[in-house]
Design a binder for these strands. Structure first.
Length: 379
RNA sequence: GUGGCUAUAGCGUAGUUGGUUAACGCGCCAGAUUGUGGUUCUGGAGAUCGAGGGUUCGAGUCCCUCUAGCCACC
């Protein structure tokens, strides 16, 4: 793995990361495809057409259905889903926090109930890494606990210390698995995750601590889970400087186009978020002049594309009125076109961000873009 | 033609022995959703209770007439 910073513009970084599955140009937005597929009947061929660099899949979801052992048997996730560019797998740590109703967190790991059939599942660092190794993703994420943003210090501190111990176990397990003969991807990379809710001192201490492990990349987790934007930006301001400057920084689960513009300006280079896909399925479309809700009746007879000049597969051919009709009729094609448009928008936004940093005009670009996006001239 | 049943928001329904601003689901209109359960949540608009008359302090509710629909019989 080689990570090279090509250009700095303020704190904004323009870099490229070489992996066994190809080069990633950063800043990058990873397209979220939880179960080895972007929801909305989007194929990997579509992803190639809309400029997707990295696909993100989920350890927990693939483990409960259809099973990581099967995927290993089928030659790994890349081969299975026919995608030869980079894949990042989330560790399942977030699912433990977000969708497991009944859960028990102990030193060894977490016991919780499957959302599919309710059966009891145990997952700890070793289990998560084993699953991710079976999937053979390009980048695996450490198994962490994601405490709620509003959690008390007294809860967060021991939780973060445990996350550090879990990281050490992840590192050991991955080294062991990468050395094995039958491992799908022997060069699988591990990113560590910084936690600490909205307590800057805990974040900083933890950042320093995990930086010592000299991992190929670092993530900031536990943000955009209920705190304000100001708090999130503040935590980024405080924390990013304590992560290694020559390593990629990944802000997990973020966010809106504005969030991304701000985070890039604070040194972040990897992002992922369900917004473009979930909102695409639910008729919320992103444009350079603000968001629009295609369900609104004012688009009933609107013959224009979602955004004039947009080169996505939806805008090149179909009208707002038609896509609205499809969404109203709950026709799959409506979701598909909505998702393709939004992902194209995000991927294209990242391209513009990279160009702006390359040309040393990121600040002006960001300010202008924020103004455009806040506008309500989409209609 | 005769008898019976029904009529409440765009659709399907609830509405106690008659008692304030007639309720619910779907749909419609809008808003949320940040390491995704094709969701889920939160608001809003919309009804002279089929029409007319009567009883009553008070009628969606009781009575009469009419209209429409459904069912049965001739």
């Amino acid at each position: 793995m080689k990570y090279r910073v090509l250009k700095r513009d303020g704190l904004a970084k323009r870099a490229e990361m070489e992996t066994v599955h190809g080069v990633i140009q950063t800043p990058v937005f990873m397209n979220v495809g939880t179960v080895g597929a972007i929801k909305g009947a989007v194929s990997t061929e579509d992803l190639e057409n809309i400029g997707t660099q990295v696909e993100l899949s989920n350890t927990y979801h693939l483990h409960v259905r259809t099973g990581d052992k099967l995927i290993k048997e089928m030659g790994g996730l890349h081969k299975f889903m026919s995608w030869n560019r980079p894949i990042l797998t989330d560790s399942g740590g977030f699912q433990v926090f977000s969708l497991a109703g009944l859960r028990k967190i102990k030193e060894e790991g977490v016991t919780f109930n499957s959302h599919i059939d309710g059966r009891k599942i145990f997952m700890g660092p070793e289990e998560s890494i084993q699953i991710q190794s079976n999937l053979g993703s390009t980048i695996a994420m450490a198994f962490d606990e994601c405490p709620p943003a509003l959690a008390e210090r007294e809860y967060v501190l021991p939780s973060v210390e445990r996350t550090t111990r879990w990281l050490e176990r992840c590192i050991r397990k991955m080294a062991e698995l990468n050395a094995k003969e039958d491992t799908v991807n022997k060069e699988q990379l591990l990113f560590g995750i910084n936690q600490g809710a909205i307590y800057a001192d805990i974040r900083i201490e933890h950042a320093k601590r995990i930086a010592e492990f000299d991992l190929p990349g670092y993530a900031i987790g536990g943000l955009a889970v209920g705190e304000s934007h100001e708090q999130m930006y503040y935590i980024l301001d405080e924390t990013v400087p304590f992560l290694p400057a020559d390593k990629p920084v990944y802000l997990m689960g973020v966010g809106t186009p504005a969030n991304i513009l701000e985070a890039v300006d604070r040194g972040v280079d990897f992002f992922d978020c369900v917004y473009p896909t979930r909102n695409g399925r639910h008729a919320h479309m992103y444009t350079n002049h603000g968001k629009l809700n295609l369900m609104n009746s004012k688009y009933e007879k609107d013959d224009r594309p979602i955004e004039e000049g947009c080169q996505c597969p939806a805008c090149r051919r179909y009208s707002r009125a038609y896509i609205r009709h499809l969404l109203k009729a709950k026709e799959m094609l409506g979701m598909r076109l909505g998702v393709l448009h939004n992902l194209y928008f995000y991927n294209h936004l990242m391209e513009e961000i990279r160009a702006a940093i390359d040309e040393g005009r990121y600040k002006e670009f960001k300010n202008q873009k924020l103004k455009d996006l806040a506008g309500d001239t989409a209609e």
